[in-house]
């Protein structure tokens, strides 16, 4: 078993390459599975799952809103782990993993916010309320927007990867504290009456739970596919840049 790492040391130092190759091998499977499960989700949401008694149609937004919110945490978890591994190992793949996960994760935070607002309007009567979850999602959006801005605006002489890794780590560590503080902030005050109902949680009927879980799988697959595709593109762009530089040098010396 030549692919089996001989030691922990070797395991960690080859983990990025191994992960990358596994991702590439799984990419077509993940892509087709994503399309398939999403078709199933469409069927379940549009024809199968019964209407919720109180909310009616708007409740169906739940099946894309909750998975988006779930994905954003998964994505920023990937950013956090990859950033730590980058600072430790300093191999470019870890930086690419973090960069692409942040980009696609930011897309899903935006989706979670927008679908949340479109759900809030018919149910709460307003697009936006300073409810604990909405507020902390908005702050998360700002944190990772800042992370992407650091990447975009880093000075040419600065080490972008290192800088971004540090921001990714500190930002992620702040998330649970922000959650806690925003929750306290909202619960110590009397809640306005715009919140007619709570999010459906524990007492979810089986049909809704099945639809939600299928959607969770489908959206996770979409996220993973997009992430792999972006990682592959970034890696390929780096390799191309290397080859171009090499070729430039060869042509200059041939002249």
């Amino acid at each position: 078993m030549s692919w089996w790492p001989r030691s922990w040391r070797q395991f960690w130092s080859t983990l990025d390459g191994r992960t990358y190759h596994m991702m590439l091998a799984a990419r077509p499977w993940i892509g087709w599975l994503a399309v398939g499960t999403m078709a199933v989700v469409f069927a379940l949401v549009f024809w199968w799952v019964p209407l919720e008694a109180i909310q009616g149609y708007p409740q169906k937004i739940f099946y894309i809103h909750v998975p988006s919110a779930w994905i954003m945490y998964a994505a920023f978890g990937v950013v956090f782990a990859s950033s730590i591994l980058y600072l430790w190992k300093r191999t470019p793949l870890w930086d690419i993993f973090a960069r692409c996960a942040a980009e696609v994760g930011f897309l899903f935070v935006t989706l979670a916010l927008v679908t949340g607002m479109l759900w809030g309007k018919p149910i709460w009567g307003t697009y936006w309320t300073w409810d604990a979850r909405l507020t902390s999602t908005l702050i998360l959006w700002f944190i990772y927007g800042g992370y992407l801005l650091v990447r975009a605006l880093a000075r040419p002489d600065a080490d972008v990867a290192r800088l971004a890794a540090v921001v990714g780590i500190v930002g992620f560590l702040d998330v649970p504290i922000i959650h806690l503080s925003v929750l306290w902030w909202r619960t110590l005050h009397p809640e306005p009456v715009v919140m007619i109902i709570d999010d459906p949680g524990g007492g979810l009927p089986a049909s809704m739970l099945i639809t939600l879980l299928t959607s969770l799988v489908a959206v996770s697959l979409i996220f993973t596919w997009l992430w792999i595709q972006r990682v592959w593109q970034e890696r390929t762009a780096e390799n191309l840049a290397l080859l171009e530089a090499l070729l430039d040098r060869r042509e200059r010396s041939a002249r």
Binding site: G56, Y57, P58, Q59, K60, I61, I64, H65, S68, V104, L107, T110, L111, V114, T115, L118, W119, K121, P122, I222, L226, Q229, R230, Q233
Partner: peptide, 25 residues
């Protein structure tokens, strides 16, 4: 009904928009 369709439309429009960006890259 409108809100639910709007949310799904926005969700897919944004995802497809991103996918188009990935394709052009």
């Amino acid at each position: 009904m409108t809100w639910y369709l709007a949310a799904y439309a926005v969700f897919w429009a944004v995802l497809f928009g991103y996918l188009l960006g990935v394709a052009s890259r």
